[in-house]
Simulated scan of single mutants.
Amino acid sequence: MMKRDHDWQLDGIVKQLHEARSEWRSAQGRTHEPGDRELPSRTVMKGIIEALAGALFPMRLGPADLRKANEDFYVGHTLDLALNALLQQAVLELRHANRKQPVQHEELVQQARDTVRRFAAALPCLRRLLDTDVMAAYHGDPAAKSVDEVLLCYPGVMAVIHHRLAHLLYREGLTLLARIISELAHSDTGIDIHPGAQIGPSFFIDHGTGVVIGETAVIGERVRIYQAVTLGAKRFESDDQGKLLKGQPRHPIVEDDVVIYAGATILGRITIGAGSIIGGNVWVTRSLPPGSNVSQASLKNQSASTQ
């Protein structure tokens, strides 16, 4: 057994960390924080999302020993556990959001219960929506041998599952829980989709690493994008004091049946018309009409013609 003869001077370090926390809380005006945990848990949310994914796709993302005969029992039991855990996390977010104007605990619990009940009721429709995404991935990738392979292996599909769940919570006002879910997917897949982004059915992200989709992006039906694509903001508006304005429409609108190839960067509140093809590594900051075909070569020709 290793002998513990190192002197880490932990008493002093713990004291200094305590002072650092106190200074930060004082600067943030949080001098009267409750003694219990105030914020939702990333670890708990990870377990909830894994359970929800298993309930949505039990024979693919559920436990290895699950049998068809027990499928409905597993789904019901798993949803009961996951939704009760989600309720607790929702209460924590609502309590934190109302910390400057305290609300009765019973009122927060009721608000959270109503929200989670609506979230649960939306899951069957969400499953059908996700089916369109899975089929889009299967039909959109010639390397895919089966829909099962797509669901089990494709990071883009996993990121979209997370996003669809996160977007439901985002619409219900549980924006912190939604953001935690999106960042869990970001960590696992390298795909960063803000939970506020509105994405239509049959959405496919191929390969996926480095994809960024901003909060106010709007994506239509049957859109396909590849790795390292950015749907971002061109500029950030600020108020008279120089503070950034929140929630302003600042990300692209991508209409139906658009394909965006690897490395393309599309910035600002512009519209990419239906059926357009955006080539790899291009930079787009102006709206495009339906049926556009943009590549590096076409952009160079446009630039030369304007000189």
Rank of each mutant, 00 (worst) to 15 (best):
R4N: 13
G12N: 12
V14R: 15
R21D: 14
S26V: 06
R30C: 10
E38I: 14
S41D: 15
T43H: 12
M45N: 01
E50T: 11
L61Q: 11
G62Q: 05
P63Q: 11
A64I: 13
L66G: 01
N70H: 15
E71K: 12
E71G: 00
E71L: 09
V91T: 02
R95L: 02
R95I: 02
A97T: 08
Q104D: 15
E106M: 07
V109T: 07
Q111T: 15
A112K: 00
R113F: 12
V116L: 06
V116T: 02
A121I: 07
L126H: 03
T132G: 06
V134Y: 08
A137H: 13
G140D: 07
D141W: 11
P142N: 11
A143F: 08
V157W: 00
R164I: 02
R164F: 01
H167E: 03
L168A: 02
E172F: 01
L174W: 00
L176P: 01
R179C: 03
E183Q: 15
S187H: 13
D192I: 04
I193L: 13
P195D: 02
P195Q: 04
T216V: 11
Y226A: 05
Y226Q: 09
V229A: 06
G232H: 11
A233S: 14
R235K: 13
R235C: 05
F236K: 05
D240P: 00
Q248R: 14
P252Q: 10
I260C: 08
L267D: 09
A274K: 15
G275A: 14
I277D: 01
V284H: 05
T285M: 08
T285N: 12
S292H: 05
Q296A: 14
A297M: 07
S298K: 13
Q302H: 07
A304I: 06
Q307N: 08
